[in-house]
Amino acid sequence: MDSLIRPLIPNKAAFGRHETFSLRYSWLTKGFQAFQHDNKIFTSDEATVRLGVGKNMVNSIRYWLRATQILETKPEGLQTTEIGKAIFSEHGWDPYLEDEATLWLIHWLVCSNAELATAWFWFFNCFHKSEFTVDEAANALVEFVNQNLTGKHSERTVKHEINLILRMYSQTRSMAKLDLEDVLDVPLVSLRLISLGGTTQHYISRPERRQNLPLDVIGFAVNEVFNQRKVSSLPIADLMYGEKHGIAIGSAFRLTEGELLSKLEDLIKRYPGIFNINETAGINQLFRDKDDVESLSFLRHHYESREGIYA
């Protein structure tokens, strides 16, 4: 089956297309539903009025809708995706991001999109320093770009991506100058994947247990990796750290090795007959016994088993 994962391709990379704006709480819902009502909204002269933002923000909303893969570009133009419709339609599973699972899912959809969110893909899948300065991360990203990507990429623009990642995922020191409303409008900060260090320009992003990471989001991600790789088994180490420059679930969610294994074992218990773990040639591997499993089925289980608005 098809996968939403967009792996790293040297001649397909994107930097700076967000107009320097980080993702905000209301943008995905507002932009997605506006697009459903009018698929020409982002090229319309009335876009700024109808979306209630400036022109650069209109472009940024369009970018984030594509980076989170709830809209996709087809030969015939921009279109909604199945996952976009399932979650963000007016009667979708969680159009207003009231369930933290949706934030974890958005994070996964961005950091598994190497084509449009190249810096996010690199930071969460390939950059393994648990403590770093802004300059260390920025210089490491520039080195990665120079060694692995083709085409011309402005060093300044590439470095600036690190600042935006930190703004999206941590209470950066610059936020002290922002209004409380602006700080609260950055949804992925609540995942606590990046935190402030003890000194200026110092940050921490280390593996932890992540007990608030829903199992069904892990199930979705694991199934997506199987679909993208088109295999029936994957070494646990690959799921933790990825192939060379590949998607790494453990790293993307900043999980410890023990916690990833524990979540995989819980996944097997929840979905018997789909996944199992066996040792082959001395290597622990996760097997998928069915190759027709729909990734959305894991999310459906999560949202539709919830009480209230998710029932």
Rank of each mutant, 00 (worst) to 15 (best):
L188I: 11
T73G: 02
S44Q: 07
L97H: 12
T280Q: 15
S112T: 15
H91W: 01
W93H: 07
L215C: 07
Q211L: 12
A67P: 08
N56H: 06
G258Y: 07
R288H: 02
R229Q: 01
L193A: 08
D292V: 07
A114D: 10
I249D: 07
I9E: 14
I236C: 04
I277Y: 00
L164V: 12
A47D: 04
N39R: 08
L188R: 05
S232H: 14
I247K: 00
F35W: 04
G31T: 10
D238L: 02
E143M: 06
I218H: 04
D289A: 09
L78Q: 09
L103A: 06
R24M: 03
T199V: 06
D38K: 08
H301R: 11
G151V: 10
K55E: 12
Y169S: 06
S262V: 01
D216A: 04
E257C: 00
L166P: 06
T172M: 05
A101R: 02
S44C: 04
W93C: 01
N139G: 00
Y169T: 12
D238K: 03
C111T: 14
T102F: 02
H202I: 03
D291L: 11
K74Y: 10
A117C: 03
T80W: 10
G31V: 12
R156G: 11
T43F: 02
G84L: 13
D99Y: 13
I162T: 14
V231Y: 02
I204T: 09
R229G: 03
S295A: 14
G246A: 08
C111Q: 08
R6A: 14
F226K: 01
Q211P: 00
K129I: 02
Y169P: 04
S26P: 02
A248D: 04
L299R: 01
L8F: 14
R254M: 08
L149R: 13
E279L: 13
V49P: 00
T157L: 06
F287H: 15
A252R: 11
D238I: 05
T256Q: 09
G52W: 01
